[in-house]
Design a protein around this nucleic acid. Structure first.
Lengths: 104, 104
DNA sequence: ATATATTGCAACTGAATGGTTGCATAATTA
DNA sequence: TAATTATGCAACCATTCAGTTGCAATATAT
């Protein structure tokens, strides 16, 4: 079974979970309240996120607080970096065009 | 059918295609040579990438050159931005710890 | 004109995915 | 101690997905 960051963030619910726990660590029950799906479904998403190390758990009695491992997200950013150079260059060229137009 | 950039880049073959055509526009046949899959399978991936506007086509006789639409990739980067702030902050804090250790 | 090459599309297949329900386990509360 | 609460796990289901094969359409070459 393929289990990588790109596959993990492909699902909108999982992206939602990441955003929520980025603000504050949460239990599966708390998380489930924010979605129109069952607690078990959220747990399955958390499992996927855990398996690719995007989230980590902190036990507190019978509750489990899930934290985001934000450095893992950098893997996506790293892959994106070469493309970023391309689109920024594109904007720079556009800027130059606008400047040239203005000067005339 | 869900068709967004996150879902598109979830597949490793599609990420490979994006990297290749970022370097140079290519036809499906040329692309297929770089993968251990059929030309038709590559075409299906191209279709997905086209449907979410990550690639654009340029017709040249019976050949079709596929170009990357690199600005579309910025959507992923935009989503990542808040997290980036978090992990950079993390590194900054780590830097500070190292500096403090060095001073002692 | 005929043969070849490039491509997209449709049908089919097996595997993966996201969801649900039910249950077992462990911690907390009454 | 008994009831409640929080959670993970397994089984099942419908849908999606990535791949293959076959075919039709169009452009190029002989």
């Amino acid at each position: 079974m393929r289990r990588d960051v790109f596959q993990a963030i492909a699902d909108p619910t999982r992206r939602g979970i990441l955003v929520l726990i980025a603000l504050q660590a949460m239990t599966p029950n708390e998380l489930a309240l924010h979605f129109v799906t069952s607690r078990q479904a959220v747990s399955k998403h958390i499992r996927v996120l855990t398996e690719c190390d995007l989230v980590r758990q902190e036990l507190s009695g019978r509750e489990i607080y899930y934290h985001i491992n934000v450095t893992k997200m950098a893997e996506v950013s790293d892959w994106l970096e070469p493309f970023r150079a391309m689109w920024e260059d594109k904007f720079n060229k556009l800027d130059q065009v606008l400047i040239n137009l203005k000067e005339k």
